[in-house]
C-alpha cells in the first residue's frame, strides 16, 4: 500500500486533482489532508498540476511507512511501495 498525505490548501488542490485522474489511485481525506493511496506507485506530473516550484517542492505533508518517494523533481512526484 502506498500512501501520501497533502494538506488541503488552495495551492495544493490541483495536485490532488491530478492524482485522482489515475484510476488506480484513491484520493480520500483525513481531517484537512488529502490521503492519496494506491496499491502500486503513485505518480503525479508536475506540469499537469500547474504547480510552481515553491509549492511543488513543499507540497508533501507525509509519506506512510511502507512507501517512499523515489522521484521528486521538476517533472514528477513518484511514491512507491518499499
Amino acid at each position: 500500500m502506498t500512501a501520501l498525505y497533502v494538506l488541503d490548501v488552495p495551492e495544493n488542490t490541483p495536485l490532488a486533482a491530478v492524482a485522482a485522474q489515475d484510476p488506480a489511485v484513491t484520493v480520500g481525506r483525513i481531517g484537512p489532508y488529502f490521503a492519496i493511496t494506491a496499491t502500486g506507485p503513485i505518480v503525479i506530473d508536475r506540469r499537469a498540476t500547474g504547480c510552481r516550484h515553491a509549492v511543488w517542492y513543499s507540497s508533501v505533508a507525509g509519506v506512510a511507512r511502507g512507501s517512499r518517494i523515489t522521484q521528486h523533481d521538476k517533472d514528477a512526484l513518484r511514491v512507491e511501495p518499499v
Binding site: Y5, I30, G31, V60, A61, G62, I69
Partner: peptide, 20 residues
C-alpha cells in the same frame, strides 16, 4: 527528510481527523 515525512504521516493519521 524522509524520516520526518514518515513520522508526520503517522501524526496525520493519529491527529488530523480529530482536529477537524
Amino acid at each position: 527528510f524522509g524520516k520526518l515525512l514518515a513520522r508526520k504521516a503517522e501524526l496525520i493519521v493519529e491527529r488530523a481527523a480529530e482536529w477537524e
